[in-house]
Design a protein around this nucleic acid. Sequence first.
DNA 1: CGGTATCCTCCGAGATACTG
DNA 2: CAGTATCTCGGAGGATACCG
Lengths: 132, 132
Amino acid sequence: MPTKTVAQQREQRKNDYNAFVAACPTNKLMDTLSDKWTGLVLATLTRGPRRYGEIAGIVAGISNKMLTQTLRTLERDGLLERRVTAQVPVRVDYTLTSLGHSLIPILNLLEGWAEENMDEVFAARAAFDAAN
Amino acid sequence: MPTKTVAQQREQRKNDYNAFVAACPTNKLMDTLSDKWTGLVLATLTRGPRRYGEIAGIVAGISNKMLTQTLRTLERDGLLERRVTAQVPVRVDYTLTSLGHSLIPILNLLEGWAEENMDEVFAARAAFDAAN
DNA sequence: CGGTATCCTCCGAGATACTG
DNA sequence: CAGTATCTCGGAGGATACCG
Protein backbone atom coordinates (compact mmCIF):
# COMPACT_ATOMS: atom_id res chain seq x y z
CA MET A 1 0.00 0.00 0.00
CA PRO A 2 1.70 3.19 -1.13
CA THR A 3 0.88 6.30 0.85
CA LYS A 4 -1.55 7.78 -1.65
CA THR A 5 -4.06 8.59 1.03
CA VAL A 6 -3.86 12.33 0.50
CA ALA A 7 -4.39 12.20 -3.25
CA GLN A 8 -7.13 9.64 -2.76
CA GLN A 9 -8.93 11.81 -0.27
CA ARG A 10 -8.77 14.70 -2.71
CA GLU A 11 -10.21 12.54 -5.44
CA GLN A 12 -12.87 11.27 -3.07
CA ARG A 13 -13.97 14.78 -2.21
CA LYS A 14 -14.18 15.79 -5.84
CA ASN A 15 -16.32 12.78 -6.55
CA ASP A 16 -18.51 13.56 -3.59
CA TYR A 17 -18.93 17.10 -4.82
CA ASN A 18 -19.70 16.03 -8.34
CA ALA A 19 -22.22 13.54 -7.09
CA PHE A 20 -23.83 16.20 -4.97
CA VAL A 21 -24.05 18.69 -7.79
CA ALA A 22 -25.22 16.07 -10.24
CA ALA A 23 -28.00 15.08 -7.87
CA CYS A 24 -29.12 18.68 -7.45
CA PRO A 25 -31.01 19.99 -10.48
CA THR A 26 -31.07 23.48 -9.05
CA ASN A 27 -27.33 23.69 -9.37
CA LYS A 28 -27.32 22.52 -12.96
CA LEU A 29 -29.77 25.25 -13.86
CA MET A 30 -28.06 27.81 -11.70
CA ASP A 31 -24.95 27.18 -13.74
CA THR A 32 -26.79 28.60 -16.69
CA LEU A 33 -28.69 31.32 -14.91
CA SER A 34 -25.81 32.56 -12.84
CA ASP A 35 -23.74 33.32 -15.90
CA LYS A 36 -22.49 36.87 -16.20
CA TRP A 37 -24.53 37.69 -19.30
CA THR A 38 -27.56 35.42 -19.06
CA GLY A 39 -29.67 37.78 -17.02
CA LEU A 40 -29.03 40.73 -19.29
CA VAL A 41 -29.75 38.78 -22.44
CA LEU A 42 -33.00 37.41 -21.03
CA ALA A 43 -33.92 40.92 -19.98
CA THR A 44 -33.62 42.23 -23.52
CA LEU A 45 -36.09 39.60 -24.72
CA THR A 46 -38.84 40.13 -22.16
CA ARG A 47 -40.63 42.64 -24.35
CA GLY A 48 -40.51 40.73 -27.58
CA PRO A 49 -38.16 39.23 -30.17
CA ARG A 50 -34.82 40.84 -30.84
CA ARG A 51 -32.26 40.41 -33.58
CA TYR A 52 -28.71 39.37 -32.88
CA GLY A 53 -27.38 42.84 -33.59
CA GLU A 54 -30.03 44.48 -31.44
CA ILE A 55 -29.06 42.40 -28.44
CA ALA A 56 -25.40 43.17 -29.04
CA GLY A 57 -26.30 46.85 -29.09
CA ILE A 58 -28.38 46.77 -25.91
CA VAL A 59 -26.02 44.60 -23.91
CA ALA A 60 -23.08 46.91 -24.55
CA GLY A 61 -19.65 45.52 -23.88
CA ILE A 62 -20.40 41.89 -24.62
CA SER A 63 -18.06 40.24 -27.09
CA ASN A 64 -19.19 38.39 -30.17
CA LYS A 65 -18.06 35.15 -28.69
CA MET A 66 -19.85 35.49 -25.38
CA LEU A 67 -23.09 36.68 -26.92
CA THR A 68 -23.21 33.70 -29.23
CA GLN A 69 -22.23 31.36 -26.44
CA THR A 70 -24.88 32.74 -24.10
CA LEU A 71 -27.59 32.58 -26.75
CA ARG A 72 -26.63 29.00 -27.60
CA THR A 73 -26.76 27.91 -23.99
CA LEU A 74 -30.17 29.48 -23.49
CA GLU A 75 -31.42 27.95 -26.71
CA ARG A 76 -30.10 24.57 -25.65
CA ASP A 77 -31.93 24.85 -22.35
CA GLY A 78 -35.13 25.63 -24.19
CA LEU A 79 -35.46 29.12 -22.74
CA LEU A 80 -35.38 30.89 -26.07
CA GLU A 81 -35.90 30.09 -29.71
CA ARG A 82 -33.62 30.97 -32.59
CA ARG A 83 -35.46 31.74 -35.83
CA VAL A 84 -33.53 32.22 -39.05
CA THR A 85 -35.07 34.11 -41.94
CA ALA A 86 -33.35 33.11 -45.16
CA GLN A 87 -32.58 36.30 -46.98
CA VAL A 88 -29.50 38.30 -47.90
CA PRO A 89 -28.17 39.35 -45.56
CA VAL A 90 -29.43 36.71 -43.15
CA ARG A 91 -31.82 37.74 -40.42
CA VAL A 92 -31.89 35.96 -37.07
CA ASP A 93 -34.46 36.64 -34.37
CA TYR A 94 -34.41 35.39 -30.81
CA THR A 95 -37.61 34.92 -28.85
CA LEU A 96 -38.38 33.69 -25.36
CA THR A 97 -40.14 30.34 -25.26
CA SER A 98 -43.02 29.80 -22.85
CA LEU A 99 -40.50 28.10 -20.60
CA GLY A 100 -38.34 31.18 -20.80
CA HIS A 101 -41.29 33.42 -20.02
CA SER A 102 -42.15 31.35 -16.97
CA LEU A 103 -38.81 32.26 -15.52
CA ILE A 104 -39.21 36.01 -15.90
CA PRO A 105 -41.50 36.60 -12.89
CA ILE A 106 -38.97 34.95 -10.61
CA LEU A 107 -36.13 37.00 -12.03
CA ASN A 108 -38.28 40.09 -11.56
CA LEU A 109 -38.79 39.08 -7.96
CA LEU A 110 -35.05 38.81 -7.56
CA GLU A 111 -34.65 42.18 -9.18
CA GLY A 112 -37.29 43.59 -6.87
CA TRP A 113 -35.44 42.25 -3.87
CA ALA A 114 -32.22 43.77 -5.15
CA GLU A 115 -33.75 47.18 -5.65
CA GLU A 116 -35.55 47.08 -2.34
CA ASN A 117 -32.49 46.03 -0.36
CA MET A 118 -29.65 47.60 -2.27
CA ASP A 119 -29.40 50.45 0.23
CA GLU A 120 -29.04 48.04 3.09
CA VAL A 121 -26.51 45.94 1.22
CA PHE A 122 -24.42 48.94 0.25
CA ALA A 123 -24.56 50.24 3.81
CA ALA A 124 -23.40 46.85 5.03
CA ARG A 125 -20.54 46.91 2.56
CA ALA A 126 -19.49 50.38 3.62
CA ALA A 127 -19.64 49.40 7.29
CA PHE A 128 -17.64 46.24 6.63
CA ASP A 129 -14.99 48.07 4.64
CA ALA A 130 -14.74 50.75 7.29
CA ALA A 131 -14.38 48.21 10.11
CA ASN A 132 -11.78 46.35 8.15
CA MET B 1 -3.25 62.46 -33.64
CA PRO B 2 -2.11 58.84 -33.75
CA THR B 3 -4.58 56.29 -35.05
CA LYS B 4 -5.69 54.98 -31.67
CA THR B 5 -9.30 54.92 -32.68
CA VAL B 6 -9.61 51.15 -32.34
CA ALA B 7 -8.17 51.02 -28.86
CA GLN B 8 -10.26 54.01 -27.89
CA GLN B 9 -13.43 52.40 -29.11
CA ARG B 10 -12.60 49.35 -27.08
CA GLU B 11 -12.05 51.49 -24.04
CA GLN B 12 -15.27 53.35 -24.72
CA ARG B 13 -17.27 50.15 -24.85
CA LYS B 14 -15.80 48.92 -21.63
CA ASN B 15 -16.68 52.19 -19.98
CA ASP B 16 -20.18 52.00 -21.36
CA TYR B 17 -20.52 48.52 -19.99
CA ASN B 18 -19.17 49.47 -16.61
CA ALA B 19 -21.48 52.44 -16.44
CA PHE B 20 -24.40 50.22 -17.33
CA VAL B 21 -23.56 47.64 -14.72
CA ALA B 22 -22.81 50.28 -12.13
CA ALA B 23 -26.22 51.84 -12.71
CA CYS B 24 -27.95 48.50 -12.30
CA PRO B 25 -28.08 47.36 -8.67
CA THR B 26 -29.47 44.00 -9.65
CA ASN B 27 -26.25 43.16 -11.44
CA LYS B 28 -24.10 44.15 -8.50
CA LEU B 29 -26.05 41.81 -6.27
CA MET B 30 -26.24 39.11 -8.88
CA ASP B 31 -22.48 39.13 -8.95
CA THR B 32 -22.59 37.89 -5.40
CA LEU B 33 -25.55 35.59 -5.70
CA SER B 34 -24.51 33.99 -8.94
CA ASP B 35 -21.27 32.78 -7.49
CA LYS B 36 -20.63 29.06 -7.74
CA TRP B 37 -20.73 28.45 -4.00
CA THR B 38 -22.97 31.20 -2.64
CA GLY B 39 -26.21 29.31 -3.05
CA LEU B 40 -24.91 26.19 -1.36
CA VAL B 41 -23.45 28.10 1.55
CA LEU B 42 -26.67 30.04 2.09
CA ALA B 43 -28.57 26.77 1.89
CA THR B 44 -26.57 25.27 4.76
CA LEU B 45 -27.51 28.21 6.97
CA THR B 46 -31.26 28.25 6.39
CA ARG B 47 -31.90 25.95 9.32
CA GLY B 48 -29.73 27.68 11.84
CA PRO B 49 -26.14 28.67 12.64
CA ARG B 50 -23.29 26.53 11.47
CA ARG B 51 -19.62 26.43 12.31
CA TYR B 52 -16.92 26.92 9.72
CA GLY B 53 -15.98 23.26 9.76
CA GLU B 54 -19.60 22.15 9.53
CA ILE B 55 -20.14 24.16 6.38
CA ALA B 56 -16.94 22.79 4.91
CA GLY B 57 -18.24 19.30 5.64
CA ILE B 58 -21.68 19.85 4.14
CA VAL B 59 -20.50 21.70 1.06
CA ALA B 60 -18.11 18.94 0.09
CA GLY B 61 -15.46 19.77 -2.43
CA ILE B 62 -15.08 23.42 -1.57
CA SER B 63 -11.55 24.55 -0.89
CA ASN B 64 -10.49 26.41 2.22
CA LYS B 65 -9.85 29.49 0.19
CA MET B 66 -13.20 29.61 -1.58
CA LEU B 67 -15.19 28.89 1.55
CA THR B 68 -13.55 31.76 3.38
CA GLN B 69 -13.91 34.03 0.38
CA THR B 70 -17.58 33.19 -0.04
CA LEU B 71 -18.32 33.68 3.64
CA ARG B 72 -16.50 37.02 3.63
CA THR B 73 -18.43 38.28 0.63
CA LEU B 74 -21.75 37.30 2.17
CA GLU B 75 -20.76 38.86 5.46
CA ARG B 76 -19.72 42.03 3.69
CA ASP B 77 -23.07 42.19 1.95
CA GLY B 78 -24.83 41.85 5.28
CA LEU B 79 -26.43 38.53 4.43
CA LEU B 80 -24.81 36.64 7.26
CA GLU B 81 -23.11 37.34 10.54
CA ARG B 82 -19.79 36.00 11.73
CA ARG B 83 -19.62 35.39 15.47
CA VAL B 84 -16.34 34.49 17.11
CA THR B 85 -16.27 32.72 20.46
CA ALA B 86 -12.93 33.31 22.15
CA GLN B 87 -11.80 29.94 23.41
CA VAL B 88 -9.10 27.47 22.57
CA PRO B 89 -9.47 26.30 19.94
CA VAL B 90 -11.40 29.20 18.49
CA ARG B 91 -15.04 28.71 17.59
CA VAL B 92 -16.67 30.62 14.75
CA ASP B 93 -20.36 30.48 13.96
CA TYR B 94 -22.11 31.83 10.91
CA THR B 95 -25.73 32.90 11.02
CA LEU B 96 -28.09 34.37 8.47
CA THR B 97 -29.08 37.95 9.18
CA SER B 98 -32.69 39.05 8.72
CA LEU B 99 -31.58 40.42 5.37
CA GLY B 100 -30.19 37.03 4.49
CA HIS B 101 -33.39 35.33 5.59
CA SER B 102 -35.46 37.64 3.42
CA LEU B 103 -33.65 36.27 0.40
CA ILE B 104 -34.37 32.63 1.14
CA PRO B 105 -37.99 32.55 -0.08
CA ILE B 106 -36.90 33.88 -3.45
CA LEU B 107 -34.12 31.33 -3.73
CA ASN B 108 -36.64 28.66 -2.78
CA LEU B 109 -38.87 29.90 -5.56
CA LEU B 110 -35.98 29.59 -7.96
CA GLU B 111 -35.30 26.12 -6.68
CA GLY B 112 -38.95 25.27 -7.08
CA TRP B 113 -38.87 26.45 -10.68
CA ALA B 114 -35.77 24.39 -11.30
CA GLU B 115 -37.31 21.22 -9.88
CA GLU B 116 -40.57 21.79 -11.66
CA ASN B 117 -38.99 22.43 -15.04
CA MET B 118 -35.87 20.32 -14.95
CA ASP B 119 -37.48 17.63 -17.04
CA GLU B 120 -38.37 20.08 -19.75
CA VAL B 121 -34.93 21.66 -19.68
CA PHE B 122 -33.17 18.32 -19.87
CA ALA B 123 -35.45 17.25 -22.70
CA ALA B 124 -34.63 20.47 -24.53
CA ARG B 125 -30.94 19.82 -24.03
CA ALA B 126 -31.23 16.29 -25.34
CA ALA B 127 -33.18 17.48 -28.37
CA PHE B 128 -30.69 20.23 -29.06
CA ASP B 129 -27.73 17.91 -28.76
CA ALA B 130 -29.38 15.37 -31.02
CA ALA B 131 -30.23 17.95 -33.68
CA ASN B 132 -26.73 19.28 -33.54
C1' DC C 1 -25.65 40.31 -40.98
C1' DG C 2 -24.60 36.87 -38.02
C1' DG C 3 -21.86 34.35 -37.00
C1' DT C 4 -17.04 30.86 -36.86
C1' DA C 5 -12.06 30.11 -36.15
C1' DT C 6 -8.00 31.23 -33.95
C1' DC C 7 -4.83 32.95 -30.89
C1' DC C 8 -3.57 34.93 -26.58
C1' DT C 9 -3.85 36.85 -22.08
C1' DC C 10 -4.88 37.08 -17.50
C1' DC C 11 -6.95 35.91 -13.33
C1' DG C 12 -9.07 33.18 -10.24
C1' DA C 13 -9.67 28.35 -8.48
C1' DG C 14 -7.22 24.93 -6.14
C1' DA C 15 -3.21 22.67 -3.72
C1' DT C 16 -0.01 23.12 -0.13
C1' DA C 17 2.12 24.80 3.84
C1' DC C 18 2.07 27.48 7.74
C1' DT C 19 -0.05 30.26 12.12
C1' DG C 20 -2.71 32.50 16.28
C1' DC D 1 -10.16 25.14 14.68
C1' DA D 2 -10.30 28.56 11.51
C1' DG D 3 -8.20 30.56 8.92
C1' DT D 4 -3.84 33.28 5.99
C1' DA D 5 0.07 33.18 2.54
C1' DT D 6 1.96 31.75 -1.62
C1' DC D 7 2.46 29.46 -6.07
C1' DT D 8 0.85 27.50 -10.21
C1' DC D 9 -1.88 26.22 -13.86
C1' DG D 10 -6.07 25.77 -16.88
C1' DG D 11 -9.38 27.64 -19.11
C1' DA D 12 -12.83 31.45 -19.47
C1' DG D 13 -13.19 35.26 -22.04
C1' DG D 14 -11.51 39.16 -25.18
C1' DA D 15 -9.38 40.66 -29.70
C1' DT D 16 -8.93 39.83 -34.35
C1' DA D 17 -9.67 37.99 -38.83
C1' DC D 18 -12.32 35.67 -41.83
C1' DC D 19 -16.82 33.28 -44.08
C1' DG D 20 -21.76 32.03 -46.09
